Simulated assay, not measured.
Amino acid sequence: MKQKFDNHGVSHVETRLLSLSPSGRRLETDYLRAQPVRWIEETFDLRDSQRQQLLAMDSTFLQRIATGVADSWDQGRLISFYKEDTAHQPSEAESPKDIIFSRQSSQSQTFGKKPDEALEQVAIWIRYR
């Protein structure tokens, strides 16, 4: 069943994916990397305006997001996703929208020990102006 493309829907998809076996998860994430538009269209119940915006996105930017999300899920890690509520907006289709994507990595080392594995955090924030 397709999910709405909102905070709850993305969380539901993420929970489903992270509950898969590593090989099952890898099939999904490989598909996300290879065909991000198709994967999103097959996973989420998009409104016409959302579909149009997805198709109009810069392909390099969309690929960076897809790769970051897929890499996090491959490692069994959650992403941080937040889409602002449009209840107070006149129309989502008419409101300017920003998509803010962040992929950061941090690593630490205690002297005398091997460095910890790098911890990566992927975040996506969709805001309306």
Rank of each mutant, 00 (worst) to 15 (best):
M1P: 11
K2C: 10
Q3C: 12
K4N: 14
K4I: 12
F5C: 02
D6V: 03
H8S: 04
G9V: 09
G9S: 10
V10A: 00
S11M: 08
H12V: 10
V13A: 04
V13P: 02
T15M: 13
R16G: 04
R16W: 03
L18R: 09
L18D: 09
S21Q: 10
S23P: 04
G24A: 03
R25Y: 01
R26Q: 14
L27A: 07
L27D: 05
T29L: 00
L32N: 01
Q35H: 11
Q35K: 12
P36Y: 08
P36H: 10
P36V: 07
P36K: 06
P36T: 06
V37Q: 08
W39D: 10
W39G: 09
W39F: 15
I40T: 09
I40S: 05
I40A: 08
E41F: 11
E41A: 13
E42Y: 14
F44Y: 14
F44I: 11
D45A: 15
R47Y: 13
R47I: 03
D48S: 15
S49E: 11
R51N: 09
R51K: 14
R51C: 05
Q53T: 13
L54K: 11
L54H: 12
A56F: 07
T60F: 13
T60P: 10
T60A: 14
T60G: 13
F61Q: 01
L62W: 03
L62G: 05
Q63N: 11
R64I: 01
R64V: 02
A66C: 06
T67W: 06
T67A: 07
G68L: 00
V69F: 03
A70P: 00
A70D: 01
D74Q: 07
D74S: 06
D74A: 06
D74H: 08
G76R: 00
G76T: 00
G76H: 02
I79W: 04
S80Y: 15
E84A: 08
D85R: 09
H88C: 06
E92I: 01
A93S: 05
S95Y: 06
S95V: 07
P96V: 02
P96H: 02
K97D: 00
D98N: 14
I99P: 07
I99H: 12
I99E: 11
I100S: 15
I100D: 15
F101V: 03
F101P: 02
F101G: 03
S102P: 03
S102I: 10
R103Q: 13
R103I: 12
Q104T: 12
Q104V: 09
Q104H: 12
Q104R: 13
S105P: 07
S106K: 04
Q107G: 09
S108M: 02
S108C: 01
Q109P: 00
Q109T: 02
T110H: 09
F111K: 15
F111V: 15
F111P: 14
K113G: 12
K113H: 15
P115M: 07
P115E: 05
E117I: 12
Q121R: 10
Q121A: 10
I124F: 13
I124R: 11
W125H: 15
I126P: 00
R129C: 02
